[in-house]
């Protein structure tokens, strides 16, 4: 806990003065089920990319969608929306 800031080290007024700092907030720990994309079935329709509420799916240079597992919370919306059934939710072992 020692890395937490003291009250006088924080900007006053519940202000976040560092734009884009939600990138520092790694939310992977929320995830129970992990989406795995089967590129053999993927048709590159990008519905998963469009529906991801966390913007955690990026389109890679090869044209396939890739999940950024640092921010994916495992909600499963991508898997549910995928018309080709190319995304499987797999339970992570802890």
């Amino acid at each position: 806990m020692s890395e937490l800031k003291k009250w006088f080290e924080l900007p006053i007024g519940c202000t976040n003065i560092e734009p884009g700092s939600s990138l520092n907030n790694i939310t992977a720990g929320w995830r129970v089920f992990t989406p795995v994309i089967d590129e053999k079935k993927c048709t590159k329709c990008y519905l998963c990319w469009a529906f991801c509420p966390e913007n955690a799916i990026k389109i890679a240079d090869d044209g396939f969608p890739k999940t950024d597992y640092r921010y994916c919370k495992g909600c499963g919306i991508c898997s549910n929306e995928c018309p080709a059934k190319a995304i499987t939710m797999i339970r992570q072992e802890v």
Binding site: G13, C14, N16
Partner: peptide, 9 residues
């Protein structure tokens, strides 16, 4: 100079 005011904590 974008900032967020009234953050969640």
């Amino acid at each position: 100079k974008p900032i967020t005011m009234g953050v969640m904590a």
